[in-house]
Structure formats: structure tokens, C-alpha cells
């Protein structure tokens, strides 16, 4: 049973493992690295929004916090990567816990505004603490990730690292969703009152899932910082939070593959369309509009419907 459930991700993993051998080109590898990083961030956000039904417009803040935490520790204080990573996770989780405790009492638009404000506070702090973060001009010279003497210093190596992390987190997330906690989350999504009546500790669960999704974002940020070797407060701004959100909405909210699909589409599409120059933005916008209008559940749900329809037709004929 468990094997069948994990079959798609295993097949995906095999495909991901052989793909770079076909495209050794650093440009394509670079894009795939970014898709992997964004997929990790959207996976966490999807857990929070798609499953638990809590909106966050401040996830870029956690992404940036993760990147800055390991960036500062490794670049300025020569800390090894793994302890720096542990520190980054603890710091981000701690901050997410505080923000979550304060914000998650709110619902709907109020929650959206509160998380937006929290993100903005982080943005301002990163800009203002010049001595520590480098301020608006950013933090340069972040070293490559080194684990046990092995340095991930090329796009080729980094590709495997990013997608390995992605697959591990995917399996973890799939297990959470199919567990008791996952069912509680979905229950929370449809009705908080009902969830509370069923004996679910609503506040605790909300904060737990908020912290977990913040840690996903932080991990993505850590990978981003060490792959680009530079980070600036831009990574924590509202536009990036909105971008992550768009990825989920387009890809499929409440569907594990939705985040990956959205991340891939939103990263690849502008690259593919760049040949159109001035018309790029118009075409890009139109495609997103069409998806949101005709496939409100996102691409993943659209594919599912299509699959079911075809299956029915085939069976009907048979």
C-alpha cells in the first residue's frame, strides 16, 4: 500500500536522476535548480493553504530568514554548513512560532493582512541592520554547501542536492497528509467548529503546520542562498510571497504535485516566452488568466478531471 502510494514520486526521482545526463548545459541545470528550490517552498505553503486552509502572504520572509541565517553564519563566522543549517531551522521555526501564535487567531482577510505585515517587518529589519545583513546592498560571498568534505560547487552537483531534498520532503509531506494529522488538517479546512467538536486542538494544529511550512520555506531559502552565493532583502519582499502563492494557485492548491507543477510552469514559461520580447508579459498574463478562469482548481485538478473523463469514455466503449 505504502509502496503504491509512493510509486509516482519514485518514478519522478528516477526521471530526475537521469535528466541532467541528457542536459549537461549549465543554463538548463540552473533553471531546474531554481524550480526545485521554489517547489520546496511551495510544498510547505501548499500544506498550510491547500490542506489547512490558512493563508500566508509572508512566506518570503521565512525563505529570506533561512538564507540569511546560514549565509551569515557560514560567510561571516566560518561555521560549518550543518550546524548553520540547524541554527537556521531553529531560528526560523522560533520566529514562525511567535508570528503564528499572534496571527493564527485571525481568519480570512485579517490573517492575510497580519502575515503580510509580519513579512514586511522582516523585510524592514533585513534592510535596516546593515552591519549584520549587509543592508539593502545584500550579503555577498556565501560559500558553497559543504557536507563531510564534499562541496556542492557546481550546478550539476547542486541539482542532485536540491532534488534529493525535494523528494525526501515530498515523502514526508505525503505521509503527514495521509496520517491522522492530515485528516485533521482537511477537517480544519472545511470547518474549524466541526474540527474543534471532533476533539482537534485547532490552535495547536494551526501553529504546528504554520511552523512546519515556514521551515520548508527556510530550507528553500538556504538552498537558494548557497546556490547563488548572494542574498539581498529582495528575497523577503511581498512580490516573492505573491509569486509563491501564484505557483500554488496555478499548479493546484491542496494537491501535492500542484506546487511543483506551478513552480515549473512559472519558471519555465517566462524563459520560453522571452523570444517574444515586448509581448512576453501579455502572453504570460493571458496564459495565467486562462488557467485561473477555466481551471479554478489549478492544472493538477484539470489533469485529474481530464484523466477521469478519458477513463470513463474508454471504459464506456469497452
Amino acid at each position: 500500500m505504502a509502496f503504491r502510494r509512493h510509486l509516482p514520486i519514485m518514478l519522478f526521482g528516477c526521471a530526475a536522476a537521469v535528466l541532467p545526463l541528457a542536459l549537461k548545459d549549465p543554463y538548463y541545470l540552473g533553471i531546474l535548480v531554481f524550480i526545485g528550490i521554489f517547489s520546496i517552498a511551495t510544498m510547505g505553503l501548499n500544506l498550510l493553504m491547500g490542506y489547512a486552509g490558512q493563508i500566508s502572504l509572508g512566506h518570503a520572509a521565512f525563505y529570506a530568514l533561512g538564507a540569511y541565517a546560514t549565509g551569515i553564519l557560514t560567510a561571516k563566522y566560518n561555521v560549518h554548513f550543518l550546524p548553520a543549517l540547524a541554527a537556521a531551522i531553529i531560528v526560523t521555526a522560533g520566529i514562525a512560532y511567535v508570528i503564528g501564535m499572534a496571527c493564527l487567531r485571525l481568519k480570512g482577510h485579517y490573517l492575510a493582512v497580519a502575515t503580510l505585515a509580519a513579512g514586511e517587518i522582516v523585510f524592514i529589519c533585513l534592510n535596516a541592520s546593515v552591519g549584520f545583513t549587509g543592508g539593502p546592498s545584500g550579503l555577498a560571498g556565501i560559500p558553497s554547501i559543504e557536507i563531510g568534505g564534499f562541496s556542492f560547487d557546481s550546478d550539476f552537483k547542486f541539482y542532485y542536492l536540491v532534488w534529493a531534498v525535494f523528494i525526501l520532503l515530498f515523502i514526508l509531506t505525503a505521509n503527514i497528509i495521509n496520517s491522522r494529522t492530515g485528516r485533521a488538517l482537511r477537517c480544519l479546512h472545511s470547518s474549524e467548529v466541526a474540527a474543534a467538536a471532533m476533539g482537534i486542538n485547532v490552535t495547536t494544529l494551526k501553529v504546528q503546520i504554520f511552523v512546519l511550512s515556514a521551515v520548508y520555506a527556510a530550507l528553500a531559502g538556504v538552498l537558494y542562498g548557497h546556490s547563488v552565493t548572494f542574498i539581498s532583502p529582495q528575497a523577503s519582499d511581498l512580490m516573492f510571497s505573491v509569486k509563491l502563492l501564484t505557483m500554488i494557485v496555478v499548479g493546484g492548491m491542496g494537491h501535492l504535485w500542484g506546487g511543483v507543477l506551478g513552480a515549473a510552469l512559472l519558471t519555465l514559461l517566462p524563459e520560453a516566452l522571452s523570444a517574444f520580447h515586448d509581448y512576453e508579459l501579455i502572453i504570460y498574463g493571458s496564459i495565467l488568466l486562462v488557467i485561473v478562469m477555466f481551471l479554478p482548481g489549478g492544472l493538477m485538478r484539470g489533469f485529474e478531471t481530464l484523466y477521469v473523463t478519458i477513463l470513463k469514455k474508454v471504459r464506456g466503449r469497452g
Binding site: 549549465p26 540552473g30 537558494y224 528575497a235 524563459e271 522571452s274 512576453e280
Partner: peptide, 18 residues
């Protein structure tokens, strides 16, 4: 066009090198 976005600038420069 990198849209003033740092991650995009990185991708675009890699493309130009390519």
C-alpha cells in the same frame, strides 16, 4: 529582461553565457 529580479538575473546570465 530580468524584471529587476535577482533570481531571474542569475538565470539570464547563465543563458547568455550559454
Amino acid at each position: 529582461d530580468n524584471e529587476g529580479d535577482e533570481a531571474k538575473a542569475v538565470m539570464k546570465v547563465k543563458k547568455l553565457i550559454n
